[in-house]
Write a protein that binds this DNA or RNA. Structure first.
Lengths: 141, 141
DNA sequence: CGATAATCGTTAGTGCGACTAACGCAGACG
DNA sequence: CGTCTGCGTTAGTCGCACTAACGATTATCG
Protein backbone atom coordinates (compact mmCIF):
# COMPACT_ATOMS: atom_id res chain seq x y z
CA UNK A 1 0.00 0.00 0.00
CA UNK A 2 1.00 3.57 -0.59
CA UNK A 3 2.18 5.26 2.57
CA UNK A 4 1.24 8.68 1.36
CA UNK A 5 -2.36 7.69 0.86
CA UNK A 6 -2.78 5.30 3.72
CA UNK A 7 -2.23 7.88 6.41
CA UNK A 8 -4.90 10.23 5.13
CA UNK A 9 -8.02 10.28 7.25
CA UNK A 10 -10.39 10.18 4.27
CA UNK A 11 -8.60 7.15 2.87
CA UNK A 12 -8.54 5.43 6.24
CA UNK A 13 -12.17 6.19 6.71
CA UNK A 14 -13.24 4.60 3.47
CA UNK A 15 -10.94 1.65 4.04
CA UNK A 16 -12.32 1.02 7.50
CA UNK A 17 -15.86 1.46 6.23
CA UNK A 18 -15.24 -0.98 3.42
CA UNK A 19 -14.00 -3.66 5.79
CA UNK A 20 -16.81 -3.02 8.20
CA UNK A 21 -19.39 -3.07 5.42
CA UNK A 22 -18.00 -6.26 4.07
CA UNK A 23 -18.18 -7.93 7.44
CA UNK A 24 -21.74 -6.75 8.04
CA UNK A 25 -22.82 -7.79 4.55
CA UNK A 26 -21.35 -11.25 5.07
CA UNK A 27 -23.16 -11.60 8.36
CA UNK A 28 -26.52 -10.53 7.01
CA UNK A 29 -26.09 -12.80 3.99
CA UNK A 30 -26.23 -15.69 6.46
CA UNK A 31 -29.90 -14.88 6.87
CA UNK A 32 -30.35 -14.04 3.19
CA UNK A 33 -30.59 -10.32 3.82
CA UNK A 34 -28.81 -7.13 2.92
CA UNK A 35 -28.35 -3.89 4.81
CA UNK A 36 -31.36 -2.32 3.21
CA UNK A 37 -33.61 -5.08 4.47
CA UNK A 38 -32.37 -4.62 7.98
CA UNK A 39 -32.80 -0.86 7.76
CA UNK A 40 -36.41 -1.17 6.68
CA UNK A 41 -37.29 -3.86 9.21
CA UNK A 42 -35.66 -1.92 12.04
CA UNK A 43 -37.46 1.26 11.05
CA UNK A 44 -40.81 -0.47 10.96
CA UNK A 45 -40.14 -2.02 14.34
CA UNK A 46 -39.15 1.29 15.83
CA UNK A 47 -41.78 3.59 14.36
CA UNK A 48 -44.57 1.24 13.39
CA UNK A 49 -46.33 0.92 10.03
CA UNK A 50 -45.31 3.52 7.50
CA UNK A 51 -45.67 4.57 3.90
CA UNK A 52 -42.81 3.93 1.51
CA UNK A 53 -42.01 7.62 1.40
CA UNK A 54 -41.68 7.65 5.18
CA UNK A 55 -39.44 4.62 5.05
CA UNK A 56 -37.34 6.42 2.50
CA UNK A 57 -36.84 9.47 4.73
CA UNK A 58 -36.12 7.45 7.82
CA UNK A 59 -33.67 5.00 6.32
CA UNK A 60 -32.00 7.27 3.79
CA UNK A 61 -32.79 4.78 1.05
CA UNK A 62 -34.10 6.44 -2.10
CA UNK A 63 -37.79 6.06 -2.63
CA UNK A 64 -37.09 4.52 -6.02
CA UNK A 65 -35.12 1.77 -4.32
CA UNK A 66 -37.59 1.22 -1.51
CA UNK A 67 -39.88 -0.42 -4.04
CA UNK A 68 -37.58 -3.39 -4.61
CA UNK A 69 -36.72 -3.76 -0.94
CA UNK A 70 -40.38 -3.88 0.05
CA UNK A 71 -41.05 -6.30 -2.81
CA UNK A 72 -38.42 -8.64 -1.48
CA UNK A 73 -39.49 -8.35 2.13
CA UNK A 74 -43.11 -8.87 1.15
CA UNK A 75 -42.15 -11.86 -0.97
CA UNK A 76 -40.64 -13.42 2.12
CA UNK A 77 -43.63 -12.58 4.25
CA UNK A 78 -41.63 -10.36 6.52
CA UNK A 79 -43.68 -7.33 5.67
CA UNK A 80 -47.14 -6.58 4.36
CA UNK A 81 -47.98 -3.99 1.73
CA UNK A 82 -51.50 -2.67 1.65
CA UNK A 83 -53.06 0.37 0.04
CA UNK A 84 -53.89 3.14 2.48
CA UNK A 85 -57.66 3.72 2.37
CA UNK A 86 -57.20 7.19 3.86
CA UNK A 87 -54.87 8.25 1.06
CA UNK A 88 -54.92 6.01 -1.93
CA UNK A 89 -51.61 7.30 -3.20
CA UNK A 90 -49.87 5.60 -0.33
CA UNK A 91 -49.10 2.04 0.66
CA UNK A 92 -49.01 1.04 4.28
CA UNK A 93 -46.09 -1.24 5.06
CA UNK A 94 -46.50 -3.35 8.17
CA UNK A 95 -44.08 -5.62 9.97
CA UNK A 96 -45.32 -9.21 10.25
CA UNK A 97 -44.52 -11.73 12.97
CA UNK A 98 -42.10 -13.38 10.61
CA UNK A 99 -40.52 -10.01 9.93
CA UNK A 100 -40.05 -9.45 13.63
CA UNK A 101 -38.36 -12.82 13.97
CA UNK A 102 -36.10 -12.04 11.03
CA UNK A 103 -35.23 -8.72 12.59
CA UNK A 104 -34.15 -10.45 15.78
CA UNK A 105 -31.93 -12.76 13.76
CA UNK A 106 -30.41 -9.86 11.85
CA UNK A 107 -29.85 -7.91 15.05
CA UNK A 108 -27.85 -10.82 16.37
CA UNK A 109 -25.79 -11.14 13.23
CA UNK A 110 -25.16 -7.42 13.20
CA UNK A 111 -24.00 -7.47 16.81
CA UNK A 112 -21.49 -10.19 15.95
CA UNK A 113 -20.19 -8.26 12.97
CA UNK A 114 -20.02 -5.10 15.04
CA UNK A 115 -17.95 -6.86 17.65
CA UNK A 116 -15.66 -8.37 15.07
CA UNK A 117 -14.94 -5.04 13.48
CA UNK A 118 -14.31 -3.31 16.79
CA UNK A 119 -12.27 -6.16 18.21
CA UNK A 120 -9.01 -4.17 18.17
CA UNK A 121 -10.54 -1.45 20.36
CA UNK A 122 -11.30 -1.46 24.08
CA UNK A 123 -14.61 -0.07 25.35
CA UNK A 124 -13.26 3.42 25.97
CA UNK A 125 -11.79 3.55 22.50
CA UNK A 126 -15.03 2.34 20.98
CA UNK A 127 -16.91 5.12 22.72
CA UNK A 128 -14.37 7.65 21.55
CA UNK A 129 -14.64 6.41 17.98
CA UNK A 130 -18.40 6.80 18.09
CA UNK A 131 -17.99 10.30 19.49
CA UNK A 132 -15.54 11.38 16.79
CA UNK A 133 -17.55 9.86 13.96
CA UNK A 134 -20.71 11.44 15.26
CA UNK A 135 -18.99 14.82 15.28
CA UNK A 136 -18.04 14.34 11.64
CA UNK A 137 -21.47 13.18 10.58
CA UNK A 138 -23.58 15.70 12.49
CA UNK A 139 -22.85 18.91 10.56
CA UNK A 140 -24.27 17.42 7.36
CA UNK A 141 -27.44 16.63 9.27
CA UNK B 1 -33.07 8.94 10.93
CA UNK B 2 -33.49 5.83 12.98
CA UNK B 3 -31.94 6.16 16.40
CA UNK B 4 -31.35 2.48 16.78
CA UNK B 5 -29.26 2.32 13.66
CA UNK B 6 -27.58 5.66 13.85
CA UNK B 7 -25.71 4.93 17.05
CA UNK B 8 -24.11 1.75 15.76
CA UNK B 9 -20.43 2.12 14.98
CA UNK B 10 -20.66 0.26 11.67
CA UNK B 11 -23.49 2.49 10.55
CA UNK B 12 -21.69 5.62 11.68
CA UNK B 13 -18.57 4.46 9.93
CA UNK B 14 -20.25 4.00 6.60
CA UNK B 15 -22.16 7.24 6.98
CA UNK B 16 -19.00 9.19 7.76
CA UNK B 17 -17.18 7.46 4.93
CA UNK B 18 -19.97 8.27 2.53
CA UNK B 19 -19.87 11.97 3.38
CA UNK B 20 -16.12 12.02 3.24
CA UNK B 21 -16.08 10.16 -0.07
CA UNK B 22 -18.62 12.47 -1.52
CA UNK B 23 -16.63 15.53 -0.52
CA UNK B 24 -13.40 14.10 -1.92
CA UNK B 25 -15.12 13.04 -5.13
CA UNK B 26 -16.57 16.52 -5.58
CA UNK B 27 -13.17 18.07 -5.05
CA UNK B 28 -11.40 15.81 -7.49
CA UNK B 29 -14.15 16.32 -10.07
CA UNK B 30 -13.06 19.95 -10.16
CA UNK B 31 -9.93 18.72 -11.94
CA UNK B 32 -11.85 16.11 -13.92
CA UNK B 33 -10.46 13.24 -11.89
CA UNK B 34 -11.67 10.44 -9.66
CA UNK B 35 -10.09 8.73 -6.68
CA UNK B 36 -8.58 5.99 -8.82
CA UNK B 37 -6.74 8.52 -10.93
CA UNK B 38 -5.25 10.14 -7.87
CA UNK B 39 -4.27 6.77 -6.44
CA UNK B 40 -2.40 5.78 -9.57
CA UNK B 41 -0.70 9.14 -10.02
CA UNK B 42 0.36 9.23 -6.38
CA UNK B 43 1.73 5.72 -6.55
CA UNK B 44 3.75 6.46 -9.65
CA UNK B 45 5.11 9.61 -8.04
CA UNK B 46 6.06 7.74 -4.91
CA UNK B 47 7.52 4.55 -6.35
CA UNK B 48 8.44 5.50 -9.90
CA UNK B 49 7.48 3.73 -13.14
CA UNK B 50 5.64 0.48 -12.63
CA UNK B 51 3.78 -2.27 -14.41
CA UNK B 52 0.02 -2.36 -14.21
CA UNK B 53 0.16 -5.37 -11.94
CA UNK B 54 2.38 -3.44 -9.53
CA UNK B 55 0.01 -0.50 -9.63
CA UNK B 56 -2.79 -2.88 -8.83
CA UNK B 57 -1.04 -4.24 -5.73
CA UNK B 58 0.00 -0.85 -4.48
CA UNK B 59 -3.30 0.94 -4.94
CA UNK B 60 -5.67 -1.91 -4.17
CA UNK B 61 -7.42 -1.33 -7.49
CA UNK B 62 -8.15 -4.56 -9.32
CA UNK B 63 -5.89 -5.23 -12.23
CA UNK B 64 -8.92 -5.50 -14.47
CA UNK B 65 -9.84 -1.93 -13.55
CA UNK B 66 -6.33 -0.55 -13.84
CA UNK B 67 -6.67 -0.89 -17.60
CA UNK B 68 -9.35 1.76 -17.90
CA UNK B 69 -7.69 4.09 -15.41
CA UNK B 70 -4.39 3.97 -17.30
CA UNK B 71 -6.28 4.43 -20.55
CA UNK B 72 -7.85 7.59 -19.21
CA UNK B 73 -4.66 8.96 -17.73
CA UNK B 74 -2.77 8.19 -20.91
CA UNK B 75 -5.49 9.83 -22.97
CA UNK B 76 -4.91 12.99 -20.97
CA UNK B 77 -1.16 12.78 -21.33
CA UNK B 78 -0.66 12.42 -17.59
CA UNK B 79 0.94 9.05 -17.94
CA UNK B 80 2.75 7.08 -20.61
CA UNK B 81 2.23 3.42 -21.38
CA UNK B 82 5.03 1.55 -23.10
CA UNK B 83 5.76 -2.14 -23.53
CA UNK B 84 8.52 -3.43 -21.32
CA UNK B 85 11.32 -4.75 -23.55
CA UNK B 86 12.70 -6.83 -20.68
CA UNK B 87 9.39 -8.64 -20.20
CA UNK B 88 7.02 -8.30 -23.06
CA UNK B 89 4.03 -9.31 -20.99
CA UNK B 90 4.28 -6.09 -19.06
CA UNK B 91 3.65 -2.45 -19.75
CA UNK B 92 5.72 0.22 -18.12
CA UNK B 93 3.62 3.11 -16.87
CA UNK B 94 5.48 6.38 -16.40
CA UNK B 95 4.38 9.67 -14.90
CA UNK B 96 4.70 12.60 -17.32
CA UNK B 97 5.35 16.23 -16.47
CA UNK B 98 1.68 16.93 -17.05
CA UNK B 99 0.82 14.06 -14.74
CA UNK B 100 3.01 15.53 -12.04
CA UNK B 101 1.26 18.87 -12.39
CA UNK B 102 -2.14 17.19 -12.23
CA UNK B 103 -1.04 15.35 -9.11
CA UNK B 104 -0.10 18.61 -7.44
CA UNK B 105 -3.54 19.98 -8.27
CA UNK B 106 -5.27 16.89 -6.94
CA UNK B 107 -3.19 16.95 -3.77
CA UNK B 108 -4.39 20.46 -3.15
CA UNK B 109 -8.02 19.57 -3.75
CA UNK B 110 -7.71 16.53 -1.52
CA UNK B 111 -6.20 18.60 1.27
CA UNK B 112 -9.17 20.97 1.08
CA UNK B 113 -11.64 18.12 1.19
CA UNK B 114 -9.76 16.50 4.02
CA UNK B 115 -9.91 19.69 6.02
CA UNK B 116 -13.59 20.17 5.30
CA UNK B 117 -14.45 16.70 6.50
CA UNK B 118 -12.38 17.01 9.65
CA UNK B 119 -13.52 20.54 10.42
CA UNK B 120 -15.48 19.48 13.52
CA UNK B 121 -12.37 17.95 15.10
CA UNK B 122 -9.36 19.64 16.69
CA UNK B 123 -5.85 18.41 15.91
CA UNK B 124 -5.71 16.03 18.88
CA UNK B 125 -9.03 14.51 17.92
CA UNK B 126 -7.94 14.13 14.32
CA UNK B 127 -4.86 12.24 15.44
CA UNK B 128 -6.95 10.05 17.69
CA UNK B 129 -9.35 9.28 14.87
CA UNK B 130 -6.47 8.24 12.65
CA UNK B 131 -5.14 6.05 15.43
CA UNK B 132 -8.45 4.31 16.02
CA UNK B 133 -9.18 3.79 12.34
CA UNK B 134 -5.70 2.44 11.79
CA UNK B 135 -6.25 -0.06 14.59
CA UNK B 136 -9.43 -1.24 12.88
CA UNK B 137 -7.88 -1.47 9.46
CA UNK B 138 -4.57 -3.09 10.40
CA UNK B 139 -5.69 -6.62 11.35
CA UNK B 140 -7.08 -7.22 7.88
CA UNK B 141 -3.74 -6.03 6.47
C1' DC C 1 14.71 -29.65 -23.99
C1' DG C 2 9.95 -29.68 -23.67
C1' DA C 3 5.65 -29.74 -21.16
C1' DT C 4 3.39 -27.34 -17.61
C1' DA C 5 2.47 -23.71 -14.68
C1' DA C 6 2.35 -19.01 -13.52
C1' DT C 7 2.06 -14.02 -14.75
C1' DC C 8 0.35 -10.02 -17.36
C1' DG C 9 -2.85 -7.21 -19.80
C1' DT C 10 -7.37 -7.19 -21.42
C1' DT C 11 -12.42 -7.92 -22.13
C1' DA C 12 -16.73 -8.84 -20.39
C1' DG C 13 -19.85 -9.15 -16.98
C1' DT C 14 -21.95 -9.18 -11.95
C1' DG C 15 -23.65 -7.01 -7.74
C1' DC C 16 -24.52 -3.32 -4.75
C1' DG C 17 -25.42 1.18 -3.42
C1' DA C 18 -26.32 6.11 -4.51
C1' DC C 19 -28.73 8.84 -7.42
C1' DT C 20 -31.75 11.05 -11.58
C1' DA C 21 -35.67 11.44 -14.70
C1' DA C 22 -40.04 10.75 -15.89
C1' DC C 23 -44.71 8.88 -15.66
C1' DG C 24 -49.54 8.23 -13.89
C1' DC C 25 -52.35 8.63 -10.22
C1' DA C 26 -54.46 10.81 -6.17
C1' DG C 27 -55.15 14.75 -2.93
C1' DA C 28 -54.64 19.62 -1.69
C1' DC C 29 -55.71 24.14 -2.67
C1' DG C 30 -56.71 28.39 -4.82
C1' DC D 1 -62.20 23.70 -12.31
C1' DG D 2 -57.28 23.63 -13.01
C1' DT D 3 -52.76 23.63 -11.08
C1' DC D 4 -49.48 21.92 -7.94
C1' DT D 5 -47.56 18.68 -4.98
C1' DG D 6 -46.72 14.06 -3.08
C1' DC D 7 -46.63 9.06 -3.90
C1' DG D 8 -45.26 4.67 -6.00
C1' DT D 9 -43.11 2.80 -9.85
C1' DT D 10 -40.01 1.92 -13.90
C1' DA D 11 -35.93 2.55 -16.12
C1' DG D 12 -31.48 3.91 -16.36
C1' DT D 13 -26.68 6.07 -14.94
C1' DC D 14 -22.32 6.10 -12.38
C1' DG D 15 -18.59 4.57 -9.38
C1' DC D 16 -16.45 0.93 -7.22
C1' DA D 17 -15.45 -3.90 -5.82
C1' DC D 18 -14.98 -8.16 -7.66
C1' DT D 19 -15.01 -12.72 -10.83
C1' DA D 20 -14.06 -15.36 -14.95
C1' DA D 21 -11.82 -16.30 -18.83
C1' DC D 22 -8.56 -15.70 -22.79
C1' DG D 23 -4.14 -14.96 -25.56
C1' DA D 24 0.46 -14.00 -25.09
C1' DT D 25 4.59 -14.43 -22.72
C1' DT D 26 7.90 -16.08 -19.36
C1' DA D 27 9.44 -19.16 -15.49
C1' DT D 28 9.98 -23.67 -13.67
C1' DC D 29 10.76 -28.39 -13.36
C1' DG D 30 10.99 -33.15 -14.73
Amino acid sequence: MVRRLSSLPTRLLSLAAMQSDRRVTEGLATADARKWHLAVLATLDESGPASQAQLSERTGIFRSDIVAVVNELAGRGQVERAPNPADRRQNVITLTARGRRQLATLDGLLAEAEDDVLAPLNPAERAELVRLLTAIVRPHE
